[in-house]
Design a protein around this nucleic acid. Sequence first.
DNA 1: GATGAATGAGGCTTCATTCAT
DNA 2: CATGAATGAAGCCTCATTCAT
Lengths: 217, 217, 217, 217
Amino acid sequence: MTSTAKARQEPRWERRKDDRPEQITAAALDLFVERGYAGTRLEDVAERAGVSKGTVYLYFANKTELFKAVVREGIVSPLTEARNVIDQYRGDMFELLCKMMREWWLRIGATSLSGIPKLVISEARNFPEIAEFYMTEVIEPANAAIGRLIERGIERGEFRAVDAVQMATLIQAPLLMLALWRNSLGCCRPQALDPAKLIDHHIEMLRGMLLGSAQRR
Amino acid sequence: MTSTAKARQEPRWERRKDDRPEQITAAALDLFVERGYAGTRLEDVAERAGVSKGTVYLYFANKTELFKAVVREGIVSPLTEARNVIDQYRGDMFELLCKMMREWWLRIGATSLSGIPKLVISEARNFPEIAEFYMTEVIEPANAAIGRLIERGIERGEFRAVDAVQMATLIQAPLLMLALWRNSLGCCRPQALDPAKLIDHHIEMLRGMLLGSAQRR
Amino acid sequence: MTSTAKARQEPRWERRKDDRPEQITAAALDLFVERGYAGTRLEDVAERAGVSKGTVYLYFANKTELFKAVVREGIVSPLTEARNVIDQYRGDMFELLCKMMREWWLRIGATSLSGIPKLVISEARNFPEIAEFYMTEVIEPANAAIGRLIERGIERGEFRAVDAVQMATLIQAPLLMLALWRNSLGCCRPQALDPAKLIDHHIEMLRGMLLGSAQRR
Amino acid sequence: MTSTAKARQEPRWERRKDDRPEQITAAALDLFVERGYAGTRLEDVAERAGVSKGTVYLYFANKTELFKAVVREGIVSPLTEARNVIDQYRGDMFELLCKMMREWWLRIGATSLSGIPKLVISEARNFPEIAEFYMTEVIEPANAAIGRLIERGIERGEFRAVDAVQMATLIQAPLLMLALWRNSLGCCRPQALDPAKLIDHHIEMLRGMLLGSAQRR
DNA sequence: GATGAATGAGGCTTCATTCAT
DNA sequence: CATGAATGAAGCCTCATTCAT
């Protein structure tokens, strides 16, 4: 609680404004994922962030705004990064696809960020604004990026002429499943799903679909 | 809870007595799916069921028990039915798989029953009892049934020697995605996902994986 | 407090719906007058009305609506009654004026209803809706009624040709003062103002103004 | 914000130290009048005074003390000044009375000081200390001064033998009404009351009462 | 002196649950 | 059986007050 204050007495490089908002949204993400929106008490968020109840209101107008901030913040950076990678990549598209799916697991699926999809799915009806935002800022860009990846593969003669829209969705389905699993039923059977194995098999299936029989090893 | 038992003592058919519990769970399912557990007021459930607030407590000890009843009831009948079909089926396994997936969409995915997975995912953490129940009574039986279907396909030389466990999961992922979509983000872009088309493509992909290149049409 | 419950066990004449709303607004009037709007806790209102905190919300959407109801209710009956008296009266107008001022003291000024003007004055800025309502429903009708009284007096040759608008205001000023006094500073010097005496002198002054020197006794 | 400081560097008589307390009480008077005691946030007072929230506590122990200071300060100077005028005046008393009432309107009634009576009336019950102070320091001295004015008029044969106590009250009532009007309902019907006209009529009425029929022009 | 970030007590409001009728 | 008025625990939010800088 007061440890942050002490840490700052020292010197020189100054920890700046303490990044209070980030501390709070980080704490809130954990609790929202764990207990849902309604089940999360702002007092608990504050406690986990190491601040008092009132401090939360210094940075977020109310619970709803905190919730929106959590979703936005958890999404912005990973998303833009991934789009850049796809658009700048030149080379074997299937390899890129595999790499990105495995990377996704390491950087999102296996982290607390995997809780965001659950959060959005759970609360979309109660927060149309969040749903709209997530559609526009996450789902549609992600679909578009994966769609471009596939079409690029088709253009360069690497992929068969599949329906890019449907494939983009099918590519994401098992990943979404893993993310949801980790943050819901996975709690009571942690070993029942093996993410690495599942992604491997998913890749094999995609290979068959995208590359055709000729290229199957 | 025990009142249902009594109501059935008498004659064969006779549905009598208004089926109050079913009316209530039906209303509750809609609202729980729409607003989440915490966001659903018992008063609204009562109103939608056409009864008074007090009546809900005549049949369900409290909100938690009502929630459990909703999940259990929404699951029981479709589940047992499906297992029977699979176990008794003799013939082309891929055909059965396709038929069941399409059937699933018609009988579950496109109905309000599709809200149950969302419900369970959203509230699993808050209701470990529900999570455990759903794992034991739904997920594991479903996985096992699909696993058997696959293994039967392998045994009869129809399918390639795939990992039945991973495949069972991969088969379900897009279906789960459709169910969740309908009950969350789908509200703000109803046309963005075409269930029939997606299932068609999913089937094509599975065909490639399970039957091998030789049998692709 | 619990006596209401006990009182109902008995018999016969049945207290009906218990008039909960009236009990609550009566309690609220006392407390709003005593402590102001913000200083009044709904819990105290509930306690004084002999109900629980939640019950208040059964009848009033929120504190603001309760406040409005208090003002409206405290005003409605006395107002309409007085207007009828004035409009139907035939005879000596000065006598009517005196009678009404003395009556006002007995029926309003000396009762808890005298708290309403203070309330409205204190909170007019925070509740423009109340201010508007009070202007339209109380101040303007009262001014109009008194204005008619004066003009009737002039027409029948009883009063001198005074400005009815200004006179209406001047007639009310000392009465308002008495009402405010009772509900503010009067608390710390209860005897400093003698209402009956003040009204008597006010009447003498009005007599001089309205009737002219000829009729002064 | 800092411009005030700069503007004062120059001149002769030096207003010293910024007069922070006065700036703060001036800001507080406006807000207390507008929103009432409870409705006024110290943060807003600070902002309007051009200082930080913490600075208010440098000069006033707490909100209550600030409130008391506002009332005291708004009252002290005008009051003592008026008493001196009355006590030193020699000449036509009715003329003095008229002049003072008209002066009162210009220097108090038409300024933000007119908010103080409303403030005191609104909060007297919550601040007995203020009520007591106001009674002792304002009401009683004012009544006494006006009482002396009247008695002096009687002694010099100018006024009829009226009851000085009642008359002092009656003289003030319309003025109080004007002050309250400006700070409450006047907000929603600014033109409904004409202060100058009302005071003129009030003076005519007082003339009749005090001077008797013989001297009416 | 001055600041403004941080605190936490306190009040409004909701809603699951009870119970007299 | 059924009702719905009543309850009160619990959570969101405000804002007077403090204090490290």
